[in-house]
Nucleic acid binder design. Structure first.
Length: 150
DNA sequence: GCCAACGTTGGC
DNA sequence: GCCAACGTTGGC
């Protein structure tokens, strides 16, 4: 099993929305590296740290689990969607997503500030300046360390 | 709202 | 293939 961190702006999609919906496709990713993780590497059962970005208190807000592996992101075909990609076709989709399932909302957010203060988490891309990738692999140790902080 | 860091686009 | 211009991310 592998572990991941996925960023989302809570104003757009939060752990609370996932809790209500139970399951959701992780649509709207338009970065090739992040897409490749979803298309090639994320497997059913993998655990996901659900990270809230661009908000008052950035940090890991809860847990999700991959419930369906790679399939085309339908928003790329929808001209009305913000994520519409005119160069994508159903025969040759450009963007892929996984589906995630709600697991847990933490009682309190494990804040970026806290994560930055933990020596053993210093190699997480999250704490590195200028790291903008919205999906990152997480080691088992890092995953467990973060769970210990909730 | 600022701005550093990074990714993408497109002219050449 | 280079690289300047532009757009986006995301913490602060």
């Amino acid at each position: 099993m592998n572990y991941w961190l996925m960023k989302s702006e809570p104003d757009v999609f939060s752990i609370d929305i996932l809790k209500t919906k139970k399951k959701s496709g992780w649509d709207g990713v338009r970065n090739y590296q992040a897409r490749n993780f979803m298309r090639d590497d994320m497997k059913k059962g993998d655990m996901v740290l659900f990270y809230h970005s661009s908000c008052e208190v950035p940090g890991v807000a809860g847990l999700a689990q991959v419930s369906k592996e790679s399939h085309p992101d339908p928003t790329q075909f929808d001209p009305k969607s913000d994520y519409y990609d005119p160069k994508a076709t159903k025969e040759n989709p450009r963007w892929f997503m996984v589906e995630v399932e709600f697991v847990e909302k933490f009682n309190s957010v494990v804040t970026l500030h806290t994560i930055k203060s933990i020596k053993s988490l210093e190699n997480m891309p999250l704490v590195k300046k200028g790291s903008r990738l919205s999906i990152n692999p997480v080691s088992e140790k890092e995953y467990k360390t973060i769970l210990g902080l909730k």
